[in-house]
Write a protein that binds this DNA or RNA. Structure first.
Lengths: 187, 187
DNA sequence: CGAAGCATGTAATAGGTTACATGATTAT
DNA sequence: ATAATCATGTAACCTATTACATGCTTCG
């Protein structure tokens, strides 16, 4: 049982889904391909943490809908209070910062414009998701309390938006420096 | 040549260092252990991108001081304008958000307090580094222009502080929700 | 007509972590 | 005393990506 396994279990605790759905859902927090998820699911099924039912579909491939077992829920609750590993990030664009000074002005500007675009897109997407979640909340009458399964999605969405905002602000701040002639000093 | 190789090259373009120093310097942007860095350095030396001189030290182990070659600088400049891969992040604490609703109030609070502490520490560290950099800048008389080797460190530090600020704010926002009784809804 | 989405899986490879190995000094 | 810092390297293992494999539908 590695961290990704627990993440999948956590998603299954919210609602039953297929491996494919889990792969899509976990992306914002943990990038994993389907080739990593399917074997984990099979392994967790063998150890009784999850179970599945095969569902035949017309005009689409058959699917396996996984759900968490009692044993799985216990495992999750044991993992939750454990001290979490420090976040790991690998960001190619940030590595480029170390040698920005040997790039031309056009390349430098493009680097930041590309990143700006990336996070602007993400922000849009996350905002739409948040609006959707808030709409569903009002529809059901239930408020987003800590003890409701969608609370996690809610705080994660809030954080994702804040993060995108920060990245956008940072890009604009640097872009502003490029324009305001501060860059001309060493050229 | 993978992304980490280019990152090491980028650091060496700023100043010559040992593998050990590179390992420490690259941490904020790309988490890598020495066991990964030494073989890469040896490989880049064999292909002529970097070179090294052995320096004997008294009361410390001998070291190899690596520096970038012309060939290495060309490779860096070719990498810079390439479209950067999207940032990868793996954050165990965020995975836990999905099953927060099955944790007790004390565990939930501890989770956020631990993260708050982590980022408060980082913020302190980054602020100290920024103050140091700004001090060195004033001492040298040279402003932090885009074309100076320390510009990258500067923008990276600014971003690290902004990021830590965001994480802290998020934790405090959630912690506030826990206290204000919003959590009592589903309990 | 080709690309993308749904849906599952395996195999090969690359990337990254932990452990093994050594050894002196300095701080707690 | 024990841990941490400096300093380098290798081996074993785990994690993650890319490629291979299949197949039908819908959208551009």
């Amino acid at each position: 049982m590695n961290t990704l396994s627990y993440g999948l279990l956590a998603l299954l605790a919210q609602e039953s889904c297929t491996g494919y759905e889990l792969m899509l859902k976990i992306q914002p927090v943990w990038q994993a391909k389907h080739s990593q998820i399917y074997p984990i699911l099979a392994k967790m099924e063998r150890s009784g943490l999850v179970q599945f039912v095969s569902v035949a579909q017309k005009e689409k491939p058959d699917k396996k809908v996984y759900s968490i077992t009692e044993k799985g829920t216990s495992a999750l609750q044991a993992w939750l209070p454990d001290l979490s590993a420090e976040p790991v990030k690998r960001d190619e664009m940030l590595l480029k910062m170390y040698c920005l000074w040997l790039a031309d002005a056009a390349t430098t500007e493009r680097l930041f414009r590309e990143r700006l675009k990336l996070y602007a897109k993400r922000m849009e997407k996350f905002r739409a998701s948040l609006a959707e979640l808030e709409g569903a909340e009002q529809g059901s009458g239930k408020p987003l309390g800590v003890r409701t399964p969608s609370f996690g999605k809610y705080v994660l969405l809030k954080r994702a938006i804040d993060h995108a905002r920060m990245e956008i602000d940072w890009c604009e701040w640097v872009l502003g420096m490029l324009k305001s002639g501060i860059d001309s000093s060493g050229a």
